[in-house]
Every structure is written in structure tokens, then in C-alpha cells.
Design a protein around this nucleic acid. Structure first.
Length: 574
RNA sequence: GGGCGUGUGGCCUAGCCUGGAUAAGGCACCGGCCUUCUAAGUCGGUAAUCGCGGGUUCGAAUCCCGCCACGUCCGCCA
């Protein structure tokens, strides 16, 4: 059990003993009071109906009865609250000890013996990833890391759309357009090479009906599971997909498994879905096509019919998605999907269908709003995009300028490049993950490349400062005496360190990766204050010096772990 | 037209699920701090009718209803 849990349990136990005497049986919830008013607070409002007294007088009555324990230093009544002050020596000694023992596993929760499949990115492989959807892999990969830390066995999956119109357009383009007829791409990456064919083919399709007919034929054949066509499509998108994988690798993302949509047509599982849906009470037929009436499930709008089988007997994207979810549910205990907000309705329809099919495991879905440009949204078709690769390059380039400005004298070119990479990639991931997924983001270069304040260099810098101190101490195993650490900046930092396990738990339970970003910022901030107030290397009293070294070592571990959960590297120097 | 999401100082964000103590940070702006562990840091200051209007409550940024603005969806597309 982590110190933070032990501490809260102790406080709740003591409160419970007191409150039982008043016949209070409700849940005991502890608040976090404002700065300076203690570590935990017990609000007394819930007791007023029981005791027929004002909450303030109840707090007055309760506070003196709370005993001193190893965890509880004192309790004070303050208005309607009983504010509890934790014994800093107990907290400090236990948390520093456990961090130094567990090292990079500090904060991790006990193994749960449950498997999670997290589906993310799942972009159409018709061109490079663009910034509009860049939140998807970053949110997804961060959740993969968080779920692992929370004790789950995790597999990440990319659902590969190999039967849609997008890949069909690409396939047609590659097979029918001359390379000389497309604009010369700026990079050699295959996704950038191929997107021109897609754009040109899309243009031709809009103006030439025979082109559209050929593309539709490709789509149709793929929907019937035609192996030759599927092979052709595969050949077309595969290099693009590899380009996408390269982009993801650049920002520390590796997806475990790629599941092609066609798999569920070829193995006939989608046919079973169709059959089963046709036998539900909500199924209707129109001109040989089948749909579910969504009205009874509180889906409103112009058209509440969810078509899952066309008149020609082929299935639709959502139908195959149902088969995919059933397949996933057989292989995991928990499913998480990361989807753009444009998929909200589709996702609801899939969930309803899954319930009709008596599926027990439904996906928890994280929807994100698109990143837009100041003038509006991005579009691969229209070529109005900022590609992820461009953004990565720009972030690294800008980071390099910053490093050079500060460290050109004392670092080698190679060192500066390495730091620029780590800072640039980290900035990108941090800036996206620190905002709740459902909030709109307007992409502005000046924000993406801003390296001050609540941005990743602030956190990495704190880590580098801690590393620098430790590198100069020479002691591998600092001996610490918690009673020496009494400065408010020391206590404050220790308190921050205690919270990591709770943050991991909350971030996992609520699928809220941004909590980690907030936590990191606060922890780095607490460390910077400590750094200002409490000299380590210059400290003359040996026991205090050693204790501070231990605190620095613990902080470094926490910063490194939390950064790693965001897929960000913690540099030793910068 | 309907569904869903979002709305917090000049700009951006946290807090909303689970109501409670002076609404917490960052950017920008103003003024301090480098003979001391990297100043990508730090301290202080100016700045908010928490979109608007009702309601519930001892108490609402938080819950409920209505309205407004923005985004998104409402294909036998994916």
C-alpha cells in the first residue's frame, strides 16, 4: 500500500470511530483544503441533520477528539471543516523510502489480471497523418501507457480500413496516374509520395464519371471479399501505412497489432452479425436493405435508421465495426476506443447493436475534437493540411534553436541535436495531451512551439536540474533522515510525490490522460521552488545534505516515470 | 429542424462526473531576483458579472430547465 493510501485510511479510521458514536454511517469523504489549511479536510455539513447543530459547532466538537497518530499531526476546526494536518516526518520518510526502493515502478498499481485492447489512430492509409487527427495516436498511446501502469495487460490496435472508398481512390490513382502528373513531394517518405496520387485521383473522380465507376467497382469487389482486388488495395496502401508507422515511431508510438477490416468479411463473421441483427425486434427491411430503428434507443435526428446491409447484400463500415468489436470482446476484458467526434453517432449505433447481440463488453470511447487551423478545418483532399511530420520537424528545429541559444558554448553539436529531438517531440506530445480531449483546439504555430510556462521544457528542465545535482554528489545510496526535511518547499515537494499513484488511478479510471500532464507541471513547479530555497550541494550539515539528495533522487524518479507515461523522454541535461 | 460536444481574466487551460472555505495555473503586460546546484528558472503586481436567464439548495463554475454562440453528426459513405 502506498503512503498516500495508508495515510488516508488512517484518517478515515479515526473519523469513523468518532462518527459511529454519533450514529453516522455515510461514506467518509476527505476534501483537499486550500493552501495552508492542512492536508485533508472533513466537511461537517452531512452531520447537521443528525446532530441538529451548525456544521461549525460540530467541527469545533470533533476536532479536539481526533487523536494524534503516526499519520495525524493535528486537527483544527475551521468554520464548518475539520482540517487535518499530516505528520510531515511520517509522510516524508515513507514516501522517499518507497520511491527509492521501487524506483521506476513507483506509482504503478498492482497487477489486475485483466486485458485491455485500446484501439487508436485507425487512420485511412491514403496519405500522411495530419495534425487535425494527431490527437488520436497521442491520446491512445498515452492511455496504453497509463493502463499498463495501472496494472492491466494492454494491447494497442489499429483498425485498418482496407475496404473503403479512400483506399480505393488511392489504389486507382497509383494504377492509373503517371508519376509525372502529380506534384513532386517534399520528402521521400512513402506516405508523402503517395498522397499526390490520392489527391489527383480524387480530382479526376469528381470530373470524370468513368473514373468514379472504376473506383466504385474496386469498392464493391473489396466488399465481396475479392482476393485479387484486396491484394491490389493492400499493395497500394501498404507503403503509406509504413510511412504512417514511421511518423508514429518518431513520437515514440508503436502500435501492437493492425487489424484489417476485410478480415471480418473474409472470415464471414460479419455475415453472422447481419444474421443476428436481422433477427432482432428492431430490424426492418426496405428494398432488400436492412436497418435497425434507433428511435427506441434515444437516437434522434432526421433519420434514425441505422442501415447495416445494403440492397446488394454487401455490408457497411459500421456493420464490420460491430464484427470487429465482437472479435475484440472475445480477446479482452476491457475495450477502449479513441475516436474523432465525427464518429459519435456511428459509435452509438455500434454500441446499441452490440447490446442487441447480447455482447457484455462494450467499448469505453474517448472522443476528441479535431485540431483545426485558424481559418477552419484540415482536409487531406483539399491539401489544406499541416502534416504531422512537418510539425515534428518544426518542433525539433525550433527546439534546436533554443538549445543552441543557451548551450552552444558547452555542448557538442551531437548533444544539442539529441536534446532538440527530445524537447521537440516532447513538446508536441505534451501540448496535445495537456488539454482534455473533447475541447476544441485551434492549431497555432506560436503555441505549439512555445517553450515557456506550462510546456514540456519546464518539466524536462526540472528533471535535468535534478539529474545535474545527483551527478555531482557521487553518492549512489543517500541516507536520509526525514526529520531534517522541514522547509515548506521540501514538505510541499514531498506531498506532490505522494500523489503519483492516485493520479495514475484517476487518469486510468476516467480515461483522462491530461491529469498526468497537470500533475507533472505541479511537481516540476514544486521542485523548482525547492531548488530555489534549499541548496543541496552547498549544504554544510551532512545529514541535511544527504536527506536533500534523497529527495532530489525521488523527485527525479517521479518526473521520469510520469514523463514516460506521456511518452516523453526525460533528459539528463538540456 | 433534431441529437451530441464545447463556452471560465485580453488570449489559453485546470476545477464540473462526486455542489462547500478568498475560482487555481500558464501566456501577454508591469516591477524585482544570476560572485551560490543550468535564469528553458524564480518572487511580486494589474486583470474574471465562471456564455445569458430561471430553478433546486443553508450553499451552484459544478446539479435541473430554457435560451444564445461555436464545433460536430443526422448517407444503402467511411
Amino acid at each position: 500500500m502506498y503512503p498516500v493510501e495508508a495515510c488516508q485510511e488512517d484518517i478515515k479510521n479515526e473519523l469513523r470511530k468518532l462518527l459511529t458514536a454519533y450514529h453516522f454511517t455515510g461514506e467518509i469523504r476527505l476534501d483537499i483544503p486550500p493552501q495552508g489549511l492542512g492536508d485533508f479536510a472533513f466537511p461537517c455539513f452531512a452531520l447537521t441533520p443528525l446532530l441538529k447543530k451548525s456544521p461549525a459547532s460540530i467541527a469545533q466538537e470533533l476536532a479536539p477528539k481526533i487523536p494524534r497518530t503516526t499519520w495525524i499531526l493535528k486537527a483544527e476546526a475551521n468554520g464548518p471543516y475539520v482540517n487535518i494536518f499530516v505528520d510531515p516526518a511520517t509522510m516524508t520518510s515513507s514516501v522517499i523510502r518507497i520511491i527509492l526502493e521501487m524506483k521506476e515502478k513507483y506509482g504503478y498499481l498492482p497487477k489486475k489480471k485483466k486485458k485491455v485492447i485500446i484501439e487508436h489512430t485507425s487512420a485511412n492509409p491514403n496519405g500522411p497523418l495530419h495534425v487535425g487527427r494527431a490527437r488520436n495516436p497521442i491520446i491512445g498511446d498515452t492511455l496504453v501507457r497509463i493502463f499498463k501502469a495501472a496494472g492491466y495487460q494492454v494491447e494497442s490496435q489499429f483498425y485498418l480500413d482496407d475496404m473503403g472508398k479512400q483506399v480505393a481512390i488511392l489504389t486507382w490513382g497509383i494504377n492509373n496516374i503517371q508519376a509525372k502528373d502529380i506534384p513532386i513531394p517534399e520528402t521521400a517518405k512513402p506516405d508523402h509520395q503517395y498522397v499526390g496520387f490520392y489527391q489527383k485521383a480524387h480530382e479526376r473522380m469528381k470530373t470524370d464519371e468513368s473514373v468514379e465507376a472504376s473506383i466504385n467497382e474496386l469498392v464493391k469487389k473489396s466488399e465481396y471479399g475479392d482476393p485479387v482486388v484486396l491484394q491490389m488495395i493492400h499493395a497500394a496502401y501498404n507503403p503509406v501505412l509504413q510511412g504512417i508507422q514511421t511518423s508514429l515511431a518518431r513520437i515514440n508510438i508503436r502500435i501492437d497489432t493492425y487489424i484489417p477490416e476485410s478480415m471480418f468479411v473474409q472470415d464471414k463473421s460479419v455475415e453472422h452479425v447481419v444474421h443476428a441483427l436481422q433477427h432482432t425486434a428492431y430490424c426492418h427491411e426496405e428494398d432488400n436493405a436492412f436497418y435497425l430503428d434507433m428511435e427506441p434507443f434515444h437516437v434522434h435526428g432526421k433519420n434514425t435508421r441505422f442501415f447495416f446491409l445494403r440492397s446488394d447484400g454487401t455490408t457497411l463500415y459500421a456493420t464490420r465495426d460491430i464484427a470487429y468489436h465482437i472479435w475484440k470482446a472475445r480477446r479482452a476484458d476491457v475495450l477502449v476506443d479513441i475516436l474523432g467526434e465525427d464518429h459519435r453517432l456511428e459509435s452509438t449505433q455500434v454500441s446499441i447493436a452490440l447490446q442487441l447481440l447480447k455482447e457484455k463488453i462494450l467499448p469505453q470511447v474517448v472522443f476528441y475534437a479535431f485540431v483545426s487551423l485558424p481559418g477552419g478545418k484540415m482536409s487531406t483532399r483539399k491539401g489544406r493540411v499541416v502534416y504531422l511530420d512537418e510539425l515534428i520537424d518544426e518542433c525539433i528545429e525550433r527546439a534546436y534553436e533554443e538549445v543552441k541559444k543557451r548551450r552552444a558554448q558547452d555542448l557538442s553539436e551531437k548533444q544539442m541535436k539529441t536534446i532538440a529531438e527530445v524537447v521537440g517531440v516532447g513538446s508536441l506530445r505534451y501540448n496535445i495531451i495537456k488539454v482534455q480531449p473533447e475541447k476544441d483546439i485551434v492549431f497555432k504555430w506560436e503555441d505549439a512551439l512555445n517553450f515557456e510556462g506550462n510546456a514540456v521544457p519546464f518539466i524536462q528542465y526540472a528533471h535535468a536540474r535534478a539529474s545535474s545535482i545527483l551527478a555531482k554528489t557521487g553518492t549512489q545510496h543517500p541516507r536520509f533522515d526525514a526529520t531534517r526535511l522541514v522547509h515548506p518547499s521540501e514538505i510541499n515537494l514531498v506531498k506532490q510525490l505522494t500523489n503519483l499513484p492516485c493520479i495514475i488511478e484517476d487518469a486510468c479510471n476516467g480515461c483522462k490522460p491530461h491529469l498526468l500532464a497537470n500533475y507533472l507541471f505541479e511537481t516540476a513547479s514544486a521542485f523548482n521552488q525547492f531548488y530555489r530555497d534549499c541548496p543541496v550541494l552547498a549544504e554544510q550539515v551532512a545529514s541535511l545534505r544527504e536527506s536533500r539528495i534523497a529527495l532530489v533522487a525521488a523527485t527525479k524518479i517521479v518526473l521520469c516515470t510520469a514523463l514516460d507515461l506521456l511518452g516523453i523522454t526525460a533528459p539528463e541535461e538540456m
